[in-house]
């Protein structure tokens, strides 16, 4: 049970992010919810590559004979973090555009089409 804690935190973070995306009306908070879900997925990948008692996969002054954690999920997570950053920047700039156009970032007030 306790050993599964990273996976349980993944489930919790995904639920929190989903709640924010579904319930919040402030667009910036929706973007934050999406970011939380992204972090949960990254945590899932990293936890999947963990090896019991493993050290970081770097040979510089590494202790002899220790097993290393799997490097592939870490490399993929690096990609995922950068792409998450890019999408978050793009989402936030859409929010800025919406604010300039409607004068509000409340998703209930920007439903109607406007000139």
């Amino acid at each position: 049970m306790m050993a599964n804690l990273p996976f349980i935190m993944v489930a919790l973070f995904i639920a929190i992010g989903l709640y924010a995306v579904l319930f919040k009306t402030n667009l910036i908070k929706i973007v934050m919810g999406i970011s939380i879900i992204e972090s949960a997925v990254n945590l899932f990948l990293i936890a999947g590559g963990y090896v019991k008692g493993g050290i970081a996969p770097i040979y510089t002054s590494a202790p002899e004979g220790e097993e290393m954690v799997l490097p592939t999920p870490q490399a993929l997570t690096l990609t995922a973090i950068v792409i998450g950053l890019a999408t978050t920047a793009l989402l936030l700039s859409f929010v800025v555009l919406i604010y300039r156009h409607y004068g509000s970032i409340d998703s209930r007030k920007i439903r109607g089409l406007r000139e």
């Binding site: 050993a3 599964n4 990273p6 489930a11």
Partner: peptide, 10 residues
């Protein structure tokens, strides 16, 4: 689902 998943590192 994740409770049944293999424990990380095992």
């Amino acid at each position: 689902v994740l409770l049944k998943a293999p424990i990380p590192g095992d």
